[in-house]
Nucleic acid binder design. Structure first.
Lengths: 254, 254
DNA sequence: GTAAATGGTATTTTTTTGGTATTGTATAGG
DNA sequence: CCTATACAATACCAAAAAAATACCATTTAC
């Protein structure tokens, strides 16, 4: 991770960052890195000594740049530990009783949602996928993985597997998977979700900016056509501290 | 066996395992060993002292690496015995689309369910309870807490608060709260559940027999009469490693 | 029951990281 | 010319994390 960050603080980038004293340039550089998401909420900055070395300035200069951002509340210092991008998040609710896209869902709550694609590709199905999607031997499956982000806060990781028959080329999906399926006249009408809690492993925790072992809400969804044929299989992992579902139930028939 | 494992934990492999503190490298190494099947489910890890020697680090460092994997639920420690790769726990499903009692639910799945009462009593309502149940000043609330056990395995903690008006004496409830309410002609017809994931605190983890920080499924339910009046407010905490919910959705109306 | 093996914990030391005081340098204003 | 101020560098301080050491508690084997 540190080697990636060294790029942010290279002397060349600082000089190109406009006029003013060194610490102002550094501050702008840092501010930009946070703003564009290069440094995400909860991330630790490299140690001041390292930044100073990368940027070829003294540590005090680095501190002065950071001072301003701390005063703005963008960064938080912890003595002996490090400097971190501030992280409070508000909880979001989702109505379980309807199946909507993440983007629509966030928009309804007045949050700006975006995604970062982690992967798009077409593959030979895993045994799980074959069974769940009911695939014949020789058929392929499209896999799409993305990081769901709301108000610049990573909120969930989503892995979708779609039968290649319904989506031969995953690259065409840019925003909504459902919209793309709709274009192809593929309209799921029913879905089953399995909801469970799990402790996050390192890779997922890292992506979502939470500590290893943090509670996550795992949701597996299979959606079906009217014919009963399975279309799509999605596994999502939501941050437990930032998301919850609301379900409305009616008491009655078994 | 031991000589094979020494290869896994050799200092060279640790150094090559990327950046970060020793214990992080060790954790990655262990995680990988489990993932690729070098360490299979049920296998015992070598003793911490041996790993420490192989990897040329202290035992505490080894423990710290293992700590994280235990927090993720990948490994399980047994004092005096060893550390083992976790066996998969058979998960129990619950249909979210209907509101049933725990006992019925388990019975349907062929499991013997029982409860241990942790508390029964009548109290002055907390602000939360007053607001949610819509209680007037001076009214009381019945609180019932129990540990839900399925096949001698603690599965959930349940705290119920019922308006004193509907249940003046909590002591009369022996098995089913709903049955008792039914007797009094109190029939909730609708409920709203909020589902979220959380890391368990010590007191809850102790009751459920899981490590502190383990993922739990938290479910808050408020049930209503036909009139719209709130009857009962229940907070449940299920073991994340042994329970999941299944929800069936229909795509359509907002 | 005892001893060996194994995980658990408390304490200490070392390393890492932010915090602060001091000094030097250049520039603007009197 | 001197001084006040902003900027930057050096050196040292303090808190936290990482790692090592030593000892405790439980389980298992005999």
């Amino acid at each position: 991770m540190t080697e990636d960050l060294s790029a942010i603080f290279s002397p060349e980038r600082l000089s190109g960052g406009g006029p003013g004293p060194l610490y102002v340039k550094l501050r702008r550089t840092l501010e930009e890195a946070v703003k564009i998401g290069r440094l995400k909420q909860g991330d630790a900055l490299p140690p001041e000594r390292d930044i100073a070395e990368f940027a070829a300035v003294s540590r005090v200069t680095v501190r002065k740049a950071i001072d301003d951002l701390v005063a703005e509340g963008i960064l938080v210092r912890r003595h002996g530990s490090g400097t971190f991008v501030t992280k409070p998040v508000s909880k979001v609710e989702q109505r379980l009783s309807q199946l909507t896209s993440f983007t629509e869902d966030m928009a309804r709550r007045g949050m700006t949602a975006r995604s970062e694609w982690l992967h798009k590709g077409i593959h030979t199905p895993s045994p799980d996928e074959m069974m769940i999607l009911g695939l014949a031997a020789g058929t392929k499956v499209s896999r799409l993985s993305r990081l769901r982000i709301a108000d610049d806060q990573p909120l969930a990781i989503e892995h979708a597997s779609v039968s290649g028959e319904f989506l031969p080329d995953p690259a065409v999906v840019t925003t909504s998977l459902y919209a793309e399926l709709e274009k192809r006249q593929v309209r799921p009408v029913r879905a089953v979700q399995r909801i469970s809690a799990t402790n996050m492993k390192e890779s997922d925790a890292g992506l979502l900016g939470v500590p290893v072992g943090a509670a996550g809400l795992s949701i597996e969804r299979i959606s079906y056509l009217g014919s009963g044929r399975a279309v799509e299989f999605t596994r999502s992992l939501y941050r437990g501290d930032a998301y919850d579902f609301v379900a409305e139930l009616t008491i009655g028939a078994t």
